[in-house]
């Protein structure tokens, strides 16, 4: 093995690149994945802001189950699993989205309860739907670029 030439090493690195590209190709989320996640989030923040405590708990349950089903479908479809928050540089989009949730959800609930207005809930729902669709798409692109890059 000590006599391995530079050419053989290049071939090995090329094989590594092919394997990483194959993973990148499989990991592409279907177009509807993030919009559906956005709809779940938007519905959850609307119900949590406008409904009573039972509606809030029910909404939380629907969101959690929906998220689990979405992730399970993606895992079954691709045969791969990579946690969004441990995906290298691409993770920043997941953290950014989490920050948007952390700001919008409490703000909508508090505003809705204290001021008895609905506009904050609707605004938060629209923002979360758009943020999820955009950040999800960017996460996908960043992950593809990262996996196709140098090992």
């Amino acid at each position: 093995m000590e006599n391995q030439s530079g050419n053989e090493a290049r071939e090995a690195l090329s094989a590594i690149g092919d394997a990483r590209a194959a993973a990148a190709e499989r990991l592409v989320a279907p177009w509807w994945y993030y919009p559906v996640l956005g709809l779940l989030a938007a519905g959850a923040v609307l119900m949590a802001s406008l409904g009573n405590v039972f509606v809030f708990l029910g909404t939380l349950w629907v969101f959690t189950v929906g998220l689990g089903v979405l992730m399970g479908l993606h895992r079954e479809r691709t045969g791969l699993w990579i946690p969004a928050f441990r995906s290298g540089r691409a993770s920043r989009w997941a953290w950014l989205l989490l920050a948007a949730y952390a700001v919008c959800v409490p703000a909508a609930i508090i505003t809705g309860r204290l001021a008895s207005t609905e506009w904050a809930a609707w605004l938060a729902a629209v923002v979360l739907f758009a943020a999820t669709a955009v950040a999800g798409s960017r996460f996908n692109e960043a992950l593809q670029t990262q996996l196709r890059g140098a090992p």
Binding site: A19, A23, I82, L147
Partner: peptide
């Protein structure tokens, strides 16, 4: 090597 490269990209 290809298996390690493939698994190295995912969980």
């Amino acid at each position: 090597l290809r298996i390690c490269a493939f698994l190295g990209t995912v969980d």
